[in-house]
Amino acid sequence: MTEFLQQLINGLALGSILALIALGYTMVYGILRFINFAHGDIFMLGAFAGFYLAPKVAMFLPMPSIGGGLAVMGISMAICAVVGILIEKLAYRPLRRSPKLTVLITAIGVSLLIEYTCQNDHVFGAAPKSFPTIFPEYHITQLSGLSLNSNQIIVFAVTLILLLALRFIVLKTKIGMAMRALSFNPEAAALMGINTDIVISFTFGLGSALAAAAGILFAVNYPSIDPLMGVLPGLKAFVAAVLGGIGNLPGAALGGVIIGVTETLVAGYISSTYRDAIAFGILIIILLVKPSGLLGKKEIEKV
């Protein structure tokens, strides 16, 4: 039982990180109906931004510390938001009226470009780097050997705060309302005077910032980072978004948690070598049983 609870905690931590990435996928899909394949790479860039920022921030703030760690995370989020906006502007915007597959292939191209560029020795290099300690670390051992470390608590706390902030933005602010209008009907939204370009840029920025936060949280928990670290979490987070019902924000969060927990449990109890296939297995099952996802709405094709 203790073992199970322990795995559950680990799974929830991983799931929270996947949830943050999945939100970016689902927001972009909700508005533009396309899979931003490069989203996993933004997650990676977030972690690397943290890697290079940590020593700089340490000049002004104590490190490791809560404040210093959050500062690193904040700046990394801002950087990635800008990167995300730029990618959309340069690569996706010219294709707004193109067939979906053209955009998908472009997104794959962008993803490859980021990965190969970052693997270049003059950029980050292909070899893994060890992520510095930016948050203070404690081990908390609870009843009957159940252990919870401070990094996991940080994951839960940060995720919760970001989810609440996102909820606030989407439901209570003007730009959030515009995002919802756009996902409902882009043409009508444009006719109502919504500047779609700004809303789309904002969505990419927001999603990228969340991915960057996820990248930092991931690196804090698994402190070896490399330019390809975003590939699998990115794909899994996409699966999480589909599982929850793509376009649906609470669904993406739920999907992330389910994938994270399932994967950790399977790795713990069955075989760790199959862990990377779990997410895809779930994807295939969900698309067969309920293609609209757990919380998604069914779409009727018009003829």
Binding site: L283, I284, P291
Partner: peptide, 9 residues
């Protein structure tokens, strides 16, 4: 794109 991702999976 759904099909693309599932076949990838």
């Amino acid at each position: 794109d759904y099909l693309a991702i599932v076949t990838l999976g």
